[in-house]
Simulated scan of single mutants.
Amino acid sequence: MTAAQDDLVRASSSTTPSEFTVIETPRVEDGAAIWRIARDSEVLDLNSPYSYLLWCRDFAATSLVARDGTGEPIAFVTGYLRPDRPEALVVWQVAVDRDHRGRGLAGTLLDALTSRVTQGRGVREVETTVTPGNTASDRLFTAYARRQGARLEREVLFSEAVFPHGEADRTGAPTADHEPEILYRIGPLAA
């Protein structure tokens, strides 16, 4: 996908000519909407609202937001380049607002982000983690690897044993058990 293509993507199930999706770099003002989309996904680990604001400021170059025809964020992908392996783009979170799911927007965001980040930066692979119960993410990244013509390797990155168990969070509620995080390494990517 070219830079021009990833700037404007027509929604496939659009019913009105003015309804479209723009994909662009997130702005700090998008942090609250991105937090809400993550919260409403019901599968992502929800970070603090503050962290999403920082993400939109500090990692905007390796993240994207999709906007509807009114300019409101409807989906996002956040990522960063690994400090010890800058050839690896780590995809932190991908989420699509409930009303906009089923249109391939998450895959479009991944493709657009890869296109943008690989240009001139030496990025050769994508890493992400997926819990065993998250079949939607498994399908998303498996399909992404196929589209890229890249190998997909999986291994346990963080076992459930390293997560806190039964300790009280700030509300006093015990932390829930956490599934292991499986590392998906996808590459090499075409330059």
Rank of each mutant, 00 (worst) to 15 (best):
T2V: 05
A3K: 09
A4Q: 12
Q5M: 11
L8E: 13
V9L: 13
S12I: 10
S12R: 09
S12Y: 01
S13H: 13
S13C: 14
S14I: 10
S14N: 09
T15P: 04
F20A: 13
V22E: 12
I23H: 05
I23M: 13
R27N: 03
E29R: 11
D30M: 06
A33Y: 02
W35Y: 10
A38H: 06
D40P: 03
E42H: 12
S48M: 14
L53H: 15
W55D: 14
C56E: 10
R57W: 11
A61C: 11
L64C: 14
D68N: 15
P73W: 06
Y80C: 02
R82M: 09
P83K: 08
P83D: 09
P83M: 05
D84M: 05
V90P: 01
Q93K: 07
R98S: 08
D99Q: 13
R101Q: 15
G102K: 11
R103S: 11
A106R: 02
T108E: 11
L110M: 10
D111F: 00
D111M: 03
L113Q: 03
T114P: 01
S115D: 05
G122I: 04
V123W: 05
R124A: 12
R124V: 08
E125V: 03
E125C: 11
T128I: 06
T131Q: 14
P132M: 10
A143E: 07
A145S: 08
Q148N: 01
G149M: 05
G149K: 04
R151P: 00
L152T: 03
E153A: 10
R154V: 01
V156K: 01
P164A: 04
H165C: 02
D169T: 04
D169Y: 02
R170Q: 07
T171P: 00
A176H: 03
D177R: 12
H178P: 00
E179I: 06
P180G: 05
P180I: 06
Y184C: 09
G187R: 14
A190M: 14
